[in-house]
Amino acid sequence: MAFDQILFELLNGVVWGLILSIIALGLGLIYGLMGIINLAHGSLYMAGAMCAALLINRAGLDFWLVLPIAAVAVGLLTLALNTAIFERVLHRDPAVGLLATAGVFLTLDNTVLALAGADPQSVMPPIFDVLEFAGIYYPVYRLVAAGIALLTLIAVALFLRFTRYGLWMRAVPQARDLAAVTGIPILKVNAITAALAGLTAGLAGALATPISGAHFQMGLSVIAACFIVVVIGGMGNLWGAVVVAIALGLIRGLYSTVLSPTWSEVAAFSTLLCVIYFKPNGIFGRR
């Protein structure tokens, strides 16, 4: 196996891992704060991608304009989901949230199918340049997308670390009752978390569109990847999930030097499933 091909696939793996990690971050935030497993999280990513693809292909808007629009649109959608569903699920049996978000998944995916059709949408990358180094030619857009994902991770980390709402978002899961008595506006904190999770999922979808295209069913394989990442990273352990997301990307990259794209995805998932077999409750654990 040629070194340059391995390097190329590993870079792809890192790019995909970083995009995946900002999706998984939102999933983990919602779970950590509200105890809700959002089965519709992949659909939010899909909504961001389809929104971006349609605005670019049908409305002819510029990619860099569409990127924030898609993120904000999905953020608002998730805010609406929070009011309509997440708030009603809090403090109830986990099955209620799972079933309700499964309903959201079905509704969202098929609404997009009804509105936009089943044809995959492809989008030209906004940057056509190719970077040449170490004997490979790598598309600059992918590096930029990875950079934006990395900046998003840093921004979320700073938000959680240095703002009042960030502090509350970390505090509430640790001591819910205490948080409520001390006057933390929990519903507002929940709403901001949901909006943030939607924003990152929508952004990830829009970022991925020039690389992987957009399709109404693309959420399903992403939700599987996110779940693997979140379970192995340890439910509620945000940074564990980020590490595993990048590891998943790298493993997939390695497989794709010898396998077709679909099979390398299957192989990467299966590899991490073996990890789940031996550590059914994650490797980083929780608390």
């Binding site: 497993i37 089965l39 986990p94 799972l98 399903l220 394989s221 939700i223 599987a224 779940f227 693997i228 979140v230 379970v231 439910m235 077709s260 679909t262 099979w263 995805e265 299957v266 998932f269 299966s270 499933l273 789940i276 077999y277 059914p280 409750n281």
Partner: peptide, 27 residues
């Protein structure tokens, strides 16, 4: 495997397995 998992993890594992098998079956 599923009965050894705790909390919501078994449910999540079923979603993961579903999508892996569908992905593989479609290819």
């Amino acid at each position: 495997v599923l009965v050894r998992m705790e909390n919501h993890n078994p449910t999540i594992a079923t979603v993961i397995l579903s999508s892996i098998v569908l992905l593989a079956a479609n290819s």
